[in-house]
Nucleic acid binder design. Structure first.
Ligand SMILES: [Zn+2]
Ligand SMILES: [Zn+2]
Ligand SMILES: [Zn+2]
Ligand SMILES: [Zn+2]
Lengths: 154, 154
DNA sequence: TCTAAAATGTTATAATATAACATAATGAGA
DNA sequence: TCTCATTATGTTATATTATAACATTTTAGA
């Protein structure tokens, strides 16, 4: 379950952060990109590209796959969303100002994806790299299971 | 790069291990499943479902997607192959007798996926679970980067 | 204003995976 | 050996996810 009791505030915060990041980076946070990021955040859990497409207001952009995928590409490149490969779904980055290595606890009960940063994990990955003479560039770490709230409900 | 200088032996070993595992588990290691596992192993790196389909001998089975996906499902369920979600590709498990938590170092240079088991990483994941009151069931950990052999070649 | 670059529109198609139902093969018990 | 239920495979169609290719519009700076 999401633990932000005021999810609207949560969405607003994310959008404001995106504005700052784009301003700082000289990036264009267009109406479309904003709309897509807002849809991603409005969904409480990971959302699929075609669900974004379904929900996209046709007055904002052409409702076709390239529209959504391009916006997602922009958001991914700039660290505003993450892709969960194991689900083919997208989720807003909850700390876009400093998203080094992020990983996800994905609950099969409620569908929420909790984003974590943990130096222990990061260190373990780095060590593995060194041990294998391997130079890591990007990491996909998705842990599927049951969150605390859902473990009770059987 | 794969470091098994006799990859044929490597394939044979994997097939023999599969026979043992299926025998022990009362599972049917059919001609089709064997053929698909062999194709997975014959590929030096991760292989895609439709590439398996292309290479599947039509005298063994009907060359249609369900054929391949069903065989892959069987092999996945029984720990004989892994799916690399970040690539939508499949790779043979290199230690199917005891594949607890596996992760992969995927080289963008040569395409190889090296399977690792590292208690440090496993422990870090477990700790993260406890800290977040989250009960992990399955883990997707794919590290993309450059292997030692490929770091030289620029 | 002019213009090159970036963003979006548009149409088509590629790539990945599953649904649904039919048939065949297998193997355990009668 | 003969059911017959289960498992595996065949077959056809379709769902889902993502990109290619090219046209047009918008933007921001010179
Ligand atoms: Zn993040
Ligand atoms: Zn949950
Ligand atoms: Zn394995
Ligand atoms: Zn390599």
């Amino acid at each position: 379950m999401h633990n932000c009791h005021t999810h609207n505030a949560c969405i607003e915060t994310a959008l404001e952060a995106a504005v700052v990041i784009c301003d700082d980076g000289g990036l264009r946070f267009t109406k479309l990109r904003r709309a897509v990021l807002e849809l991603v955040w409005t969904s409480h859990g990971p959302i699929k590209a075609y669900d974004i497409l379904d929900q996209l207001d046709s007055s904002i952009a052409s409702v076709t796959p390239p529209t959504v995928y391009r916006a997602l590409d922009f958001l991914l490149e700039n660290g505003l969303v993450h892709k969960l490969s194991s689900l083919n779904a997208y989720v807003g980055c909850s700390h876009p100002h400093r998203h080094h290595e992020c990983y996800f606890l994905i609950c099969t009960g409620c569908g929420e994806a909790m984003e974590c940063c943990n130096s222990g994990l990061v260190d373990a990955v780095a060590l593995t790299g060194r041990q294998n003479n391997f130079k890591p560039k990007s990491i996909t770490l998705e842990i599927t299971g049951e969150c605390g709230d859902c473990q009770g409900r059987h």
